[in-house]
């Protein structure tokens, strides 16, 4: 305000009626500044209710020994009852490295082979063949996502079942003389965990990639064909670079999805068949917090596992956002808030 007055003085102009109707200007200005937050408010409310408040509670719970036996007795909100014991327990757990290793393997393999890899392959193929065939294949691949998860895992158990009941054993392995017709979920649990999760995960990327490929203006692919490129070269040099953004988004989003998912593993192997053989971090959190091994669900201890998982997830997300130079790619709005 001061600079402005000086400038006017300098140029020898009559003072402008800047301050006339200040109240009015102030009001419309404030309204302008608040408008974005009005648009954001429903999200802010939902996020507060279902992310932030719960997160704070989980965080506090993670320092307590709240469980089913002392529920209603333990005053968990009082700092007196807080300690780091749960975290000590996690980091001295002798299965910690196995669980961590399982989690990394689960996320990395499923992501690379299915959620991004297979998704891309299906999207590319189904957009380059006859339209109706493409639609049929995508419908087929969407089935795992929309089938009730209980039924879906039951179906996979049937596929993996021992001879003569199991489909894979009965029609493929036994006739070919491979294996002894054992229950494949016991002999190769990880293969099935990748398959079961991957078949659901692939459809997410498939839809986004297929959509992105279809939205590439035809001029580009035609130009590339005119230049003499083969279909593969067109894909490699024209289409893939143009779907860079959905690729980055799906990679990021699905990493986090996988990191936090556990329903399928729970229903399929529940961490078994061997001790902690297929137990991943989120499943451990669930087991500790919500299922009772000894007639006792350890909410506090489970919460501590969750908190560590949240930290891992947030760190991953931040790394992705950094690596993909996300901030630089977000465009500035071309209308100012007055």
């Amino acid at each position: 305000m001061k600079r402005r007055t000086e400038k006017i003085g300098e140029r020898g102009k009559p003072p402008l009626p800047v301050l006339l109707g200040t109240r009015n200007i102030g009001f419309s200005r404030m309204r302008g500044q608040l408008a974005p937050y009005a648009f954001l408010s429903p999200t802010l409310i939902l996020v507060t209710l279902f992310f932030f408040i719960p997160l704070v509670m989980v965080f506090i719970l993670s320092f307590t020994k709240l469980d089913m036996t002392n529920f209603g007795i333990l005053e968990w909100w009082k700092p007196v009852n807080w300690s780091l014991d749960n975290y000590v327990k996690i980091f001295t757990n002798r299965f910690l490295s196995r669980i961590l290793g399982n989690t990394i393997m689960y996320v990395a393999v499923t992501l690379a082979l299915f959620n991004v890899g297979m998704a891309l392959v299906i999207a590319l193929i189904t957009t380059h063949i006859k339209r109706r065939t493409g639609f049929a294949f995508r419908t087929l691949w969407f089935l795992p996502r929309i089938t009730p998860v209980v039924v879906y895992t039951m179906m996979w158990r049937a596929l993996a079942g021992p001879a003569p009941m199991g489909v894979i054993n009965k029609y493929f392995l036994v006739p070919l003389g491979i294996g002894g017709g054992e229950y494949l979920l016991h002999t190769h649990p990880w293969v099935f965990i990748f398959l079961v999760n991957g078949f659901i995960g692939a459809s997410f990327g498939m839809i986004l990639f297929a959509s992105a490929i279809e939205s590439i203006p035809k001029d580009y692919t035609i130009a590339s064909k005119v230049d003499g490129a083969t279909t593969w070269q067109t894909i490699r040099y024209v289409e893939l670079p143009m779907i860079k953004w959905p690729l980055l988004f799906v990679t990021t989003y699905q990493t986090l999805s996988l990191l936090t998912s556990f329903e399928q593993i729970m229903l399929l192997t529940d961490g078994g068949p061997g001790l902690y053989q297929t137990e991943v971090w989120s499943l451990t959190a669930y087991h500790r917090a919500l299922t009772s091994y000894f007639g006792n669900t350890q909410w506090g201890y489970g919460a501590a596992w969750s908190v560590v998982l949240v930290i891992i997830g947030v760190v991953m997300a931040v790394i992705y956002l950094r690596v993909f130079k996300f901030r630089e790619l977000v465009e500035e709005p071309k209308i100012d808030q007055l």
Binding site: R3, L16, I25, S28, I335
Partner: peptide, 25 residues
């Protein structure tokens, strides 16, 4: 038009500073 906000300086319509007026005003 009131779509962009000046970083500094004035816009006057008939000697009235309109910097903070919304486009519709």
């Amino acid at each position: 038009a009131g779509i962009y906000k000046p970083t500094s300086g004035h816009i006057c319509f008939d000697d009235r500073v309109v910097n903070h007026l919304l486009p519709k005003e």
